[in-house]
Write a protein that binds this DNA or RNA. Structure first.
Length: 823
RNA sequence: GCCGGGGUGGCGGAACUGGCAGACGCGCAUGACUUAGGAUCAUGUGGGUUAUCCCGUGAAGGUUCAAGUCCUUUCCCCGGCACCA
């Protein structure tokens, strides 16, 4: 075997650069295919786990090229952001320098993997030519009141020295560095994503080709709930309390109201020292414990009136009612809410059953836990006897009619905090003037350039604030001295619209060419990691909807099909556990070493064959060798027969003169085309496509091809084999294609076509079951009629013993499938 | 607790609208070629077994001529949300 992968791969990587078939022609929109990878954060060297994403994308776009699509497969760099800045601080370099260096390293890695991008449309989010338009979008949002500044409690990461968006806080810690976040009251810039909560939720149903997992995560994050705000008047104080509930059917069972410690009403009361002490304690709990904690509260000495039955209800302040949800006041129904139940038991508060179970056995005095299921209304109110689930909406309308409450839809989603007190990001284009106030930077003055020569160490306020030459500017309105906003934007703003910019990456007069964008989007296939399920994917959907509302684009969802590939894991020598590849875990497999030993095609094949691409997979060095062997066998097989190869197609073969074995090869060839095509078309079954090709190659390699006609079949088989493998292992297939005498690149030839008729066989194998158990398989002519088939089965010597002396109840004959004899 | 996904050999995983469970690969075993084998090739490989037999897709029931696949109950694993009222 003289499979010199190094030479072959270098040769073709060079040749492909000149191949126009891999460059997009935007005008050819008839069969367009926009294949988008989540663009990388250039943070250093890539490992084989990263490779999976790009290899899948490359295989897909090469396949689509062969299917005759005009494929747009661009690449760019998510180049602003904290990791680059932190690295720069640590190593005393400018983040731009280190980032550009990393980008070069990534690019050469892509090249070595044989991944083809249309580099003419490359973009860098950290360059003024890009962030000018990020700033322009900010102004657009500002104009539409979608960008605004407010004083609010925000999440502060002390280690990153900046505020974070809600989406970047995981278990009360910074998602990046895992430091516990602090709550701070600060004036910050927000995007009004909550205006889109409803549409972001509803339109998830349009995304039929998104993983359920991702949709469910977004749904949970948006967190819609339908309820009522019910007004309870004070019995012994002025005003009242508004409670939000999703269970108005339990209104008759309210026995107390629980206020959050931060509730405004408390400020209007004359509170005893003990109550004040309690409130301060609860407020002082920096982190409200996530898991079970003891419910506590104090009675305020005040009462309110239940609007439907005039009950006088005590008012409590508790640690389990929270201000951030609903109205910060809970109408507590201990009989039908477990939390209220626990609290009522602790403080000996009354429990009132107003919904009965099926056998009407719920008794207040013997209740062990709250009854939270659907039951029958038993409250003495107007809906008595009705199903409680129906009463929910009946009660809601009833309360609205009487002016006692108001239907409310609430979302968990909060506005997106986009200010960052860090250097390496796009400056927020706002100017503050003492006389004119807050003003947007005029469009003609964009971009607001991020100064390069800055002491960028983060110390709690933006490093830009120390740069007087940046801060000081003229008011665009009155031209007096004014100050610039010094915060930069969250990098997720940059990445929320890059897929639009690819289409006009070098346009400097406008953000993008709307006509072209409308023709080429939505993206036909988006591929990336599931870690972006909420952050990037939700933000991008929001941007698309906002841009739609601005009239800039005609579509409302950016990504038609989403594919989230699984991670590649390996046992860590440090922990002994299976972990995601990372330097700190010591379980990284370097593509360089792998390519050195086996070549890029082997890495590509193994990466695709490792398992279902959407699932996490364990890297196995032995199995890599298996893939290398497979390529070697293909290499030997093609070389062995290259002299018999003739450039023919299926229609040149006279199949009636073939011997059965060779005829079968012809049949299998049609079949493998069908199978592989289906696997690639049908939701990314790349791994089974490889198995099918392996199986096929095992079948055809063992035979002898003697006659002229045999050689034609062999030639078709060889060409099919290479065609089918070409998107997956492009270098070696190109080389073999050339060795067989072809002048054109294999990627300039179309994907093979199969003939369904030719897949049919003359004889078929029919399993024969007795009482559902397989007893024998029968070789019969495909054209056999049901009666003959049945007869053949019943007379078979291996079936006879099972039926002799027994009465045959029924014989099931499924044409071309099986026979089942029931005795 | 709620929402989503998933449990199949020693391992990664196949199995179309219910129709031969375990494709393909790894590993393992035996053999061949070899001075050698951690290279390559061939053969075998779910378990039990003398078997042409029996058992087998997390568990238990059910529907069906037939269930990994459909229905009911249940256990476990992964992801998301969560004292969310």
């Amino acid at each position: 075997m003289d499979y010199n992968f190094k030479k072959i791969e270098a040769k073709w990587q060079e040749k492909w650069k000149k191949l126009s078939r891999f460059k997009v022609d935007f005008k050819n929109v008839k069969k367009k295919y926009y294949c988008l990878m989540m663009f990388p954060y250039p943070s250093g060297t890539l490992h084989v786990g990263h490779g999976r994403n790009y290899i899948i994308g490359d295989a897909l776009s090469r396949y689509k090229v062969k299917r005759g699509f005009e494929v747009f497969h661009p690449m760019g760099w998510d180049a602003f952001g904290l990791p680059a800045e932190n690295y720069a601080i640590k190593h005393q370099v400018h983040p731009r320098t280190s980032t550009l260096k990393n980008i070069e390293a990534c690019k050469s890695q892509f090249l070595k993997w044989g991944i083809l991008y249309d580099w003419e449309h490359e973009l860098f989010t950290c360059e003024p030519s890009y962030y000018k338009w990020t700033q322009w979008l900010f102004l657009k949002f500002y104009e539409k009141s979608l960008a605004y500044r407010k004083h609010a409690p925000v999440n502060w990461c002390p280690s990153c020295a900046t505020v974070l968006a809600n989406e970047q806080v995981v278990n009360n810690a910074c998602e990046r560095c895992d430091t516990e976040v602090q709550k701070k009251e600060l004036k910050q810039w927000f995007f009004k994503i909550t205006d889109y909560a409803d549409r972001l939720l509803k339109d998830l149903s349009l995304l039929t080709h998104w993983p359920e997992r991702v949709k469910s995560m977004q749904e949970n994050w948006i967190g819609r709930s339908e309820g009522v705000n019910i007004i309870f008047k004070g019995a012994d104080f002025k005003g009242g309390v508004e409670c939000y509930t999703t269970r108005p059917d339990t209104l008759y069972g309210v026995t107390f109201v629980a206020l959050a410690a931060e509730h405004r009403l408390l400020e209007t009361f004359n509170l005893s020292p003990e109550v004040k002490k309690f409130i301060d304690e609860v407020k002082g709990q920096v982190v409200r414990p996530e898991d079970k904690f003891e419910k506590k509260g104090v009675f305020l000495g005040k009462h309110i009136i239940n609007p439907v039955n005039r009950d006088k209800i005590p008012l409590w302040v508790t640690n389990y009612a929270i201000m951030e949800y609903g109205t910060g006041a809970v109408m507590a129904v201990p009989a039908h809410d477990q939390r209220d139940f626990e609290f009522a038991q602790e403080y000996k508060l009354p429990i009132k059953v107003v919904i009965q179970n099926e056998d009407k056995s719920l008794r207040e005095e013997s209740l062990k836990e709250a009854f939270t299921e659907v039951g029958v209304q038993a409250d003495g109110g107007p809906f008595n006897g009705k199903k409680s689930s129906e009463v929910v909406s009946l009660m809601r309308s009833f309360l609205e009619e009487k002016g006692l409450g108001k239907a409310q839809v609430r979302y968990r989603l909060r506005d997106w905090l986009i200010s960052r007190q860090r250097y390496w990001g796009a400056p927020i284009p706002i100017i503050y003037c003492d006389s004119c106030g807050e003003l947007p930077v005029p469009e003609k003055d964009l971009p607001v350039i991020l100064p390069m020569d800055v002491a960028f160490k983060a110390e709690g306020e933006s490093p830009l604030a120390r740069e007087t030459s940046f801060v000081n500017t003229k008011c665009p309105q009155c031209h007096k001295q004014a100050r610039r906003e010094t915060d930069t934007m969250d990098t997720f703003v940059d990445s929320s619209w890059y897929y639009l910019r690819y289409l006009s990456a070098h346009e400097d007069k406008k953000i993008f060419d709307s006509e072209r964008v409308n023709q080429w989007l939505p993206v036909d296939q988006y591929i990336g990691g599931v870690e972006h399920a909420i952050l990037h994917l939700l933000y991008s959907r929001f941007f698309t909807k906002a841009l739609y509302d601005c009239g800039l684009i005609h579509f409302q969802e950016p990504f038609q099909n989403l594919f989230t590939q699984g991670m590649i894991c390996k046992k860590s020598p440090n922990t002994g556990k299976l972990e995601k590849m990372s330097k700190s875990k010591g379980n990284v497999v370097s593509p360089d070493e792998l390519i050195e030993k086996y070549g890029a095609d082997t890495e590509r094949l193994y990466t695709i064959f490792i398992g279902p691409p959407e699932k996490d997979a364990e890297w196995n060095d032995d199995a890599v060798a298996g893939c290398f062997r497979f390529i070697g066998r293909i290499w030997d097989f093609v070389l062995e027969h290259k002299n018999s190869y003739i450039d023919v197609s299926f229609k040149d073969i006279k199949d009636d003169v073939l011997n059965p074995d060779v005829k079968n090869v012809l049949r299998l060839t049609h079949k493998v085309i069908q199978d592989v095509t289906n696997s690639l078309e049908d939701q990314f079954h790349f791994n089974t496509a490889v198995s099918k090709i392996m199986e096929y190659s095992n079948e055809i390699r063992g035979l002898e091809y003697k006659t002229q006609e045999d050689c034609k079949v062999l030639s078709c088989a060889l060409s099919t084999l290479l065609q089918l493998l070409s998107p997956l292992i492009p270098h070696v297939t190109e080389e073999l294609w050339e060795i067989l005498g072809h002048k054109k690149s294999i990627f300039e030839t179309p994907w093979p076509e199969y003939d369904k008729e030719k897949i049919q066989t003359d004889t078929i194998t029919i399993p024969v079951q007795v009482n559902g158990k397989l007893r024998v398989t029968l070789e019969v002519a495909a054209s056999i009629n049901q009666e003959d088939l049945k007869k053949a089965a019943l007379e078979h010597p291996r079936i006879q013993p099972f039926i002799v002396g027994k009465s045959i109840k029924k014989v099931i004959v499924v044409p071309k499938r099986l026979i089942n004899v029931v005795v």
